[in-house]
Write a protein that binds this DNA or RNA. Structure first.
Lengths: 162, 162
DNA sequence: CTCGGATCGTCTGGACTCGGACGATCCTAT
DNA sequence: ATAGGATCGTCCGAGTCCAGACGATCCGAG
């Protein structure tokens, strides 16, 4: 799925939308813009990726989760998740504790500083989204989110049928 | 930007949408679903990626383009584009001809078989999009595409300001 | 108790990505 | 004519991703 180039160009930016009728391309272009923006915000506060924040977000609800469960929740490969957790742990944003009832599994948990960084990033995300949707009224926003969710889910539901 | 895992899971599919209010995540999830679907269609007809098709699509309009121009149009790194073109050329879907007026540049051009493959893939794409938007009326579709385009473009326009 | 298989986290090998360097070619100024 | 610099396509090296292998650990059958 990671299939398209990062936008390092400064001049020729909007050309991803050269296929203005193609849903897939538009989705990619839009997602790419948001991600580029958020990646920037992420590195500013010591994170590495949007993924770093995504993992933090998943951990913020305080649920105890196996690394494997976590990797499934955030759609990050379990081996890749390891490097993410390593980095987060090094920065003391999370800790990995061993489940005493099953010594195979590690339970990653967010620390208080991790929670702070997460909150800080959350407002950056809100700003980015607000800017992206500037001038779009509430009903249209709701429709957009609903349609996106439907696309993401429907495809999933449609696959096992075929 | 290539930041999220491919969905090789069969069981836990819809969990990318575990953050149903987050625009960025939803965009990624939706784009991922479409791409997964189209990747499947791509390999079925001898292509490798959505990117392969994307390049073919860009070449299908018959405009003469430098490889560098092409890489900008489709948002693929110029070095990565080389491997794509190599593959397409090996499968005789394109040819690289040397511009006689500037022997530095190569002009990739789609062949007739390339055109055929492209057309075949286009219907697969239409089917996938139709399924994704099944039950969404015309006005809503138009709005969706418009909003996505706006997100993709507005961010680009907003960046140089900051 | 113990043995075989399942499941956890981690490691490793091969493939891919992309910034920077390179030769070839062009263009402009002198 | 030619030197210097810009621009093309390609190559290389460091970084990343992920399928599969691996040790550690758990659990159930006997």
């Amino acid at each position: 799925m990671g299939t398209f180039a990062k936008n390092t160009d400064d001049t020729e930016l909007a050309l991803c939308a050269a296929f203005p009728t193609d849903l897939t391309m538009l989705l990619h272009a839009a997602a790419g813009r948001m991600t580029d923006d958020l990646d920037l915000a992420a590195v500013e506060m010591g994170l590495n990726d949007v993924r770093d924040w995504l993992v933090l977000a998943a951990l913020d609800d305080g649920r105890q989760r196996t690394q494997l469960e976590l990797s499934r929740v955030v759609c990050v490969d379990k081996t890749t998740l390891i490097s993410v957790l390593d980095r987060l742990e090094k920065h003391e944003l999370i800790v990995r504790s061993v489940d005493p009832s099953d010594r195979r599994v590690r339970i990653p948990q967010i620390t208080s500083t991790g929670r702070k960084v997460y909150a800080k990033f959350a407002v950056a995300r809100d700003v980015a989204e607000a800017r992206a949707l500037n001038g779009v009224d509430q009903a249209e926003r709701a429709l957009l989110l609903d349609l996106l969710a439907r696309i993401a889910d429907r495809q999933a539901a449609a696959l096992p049928a075929s």
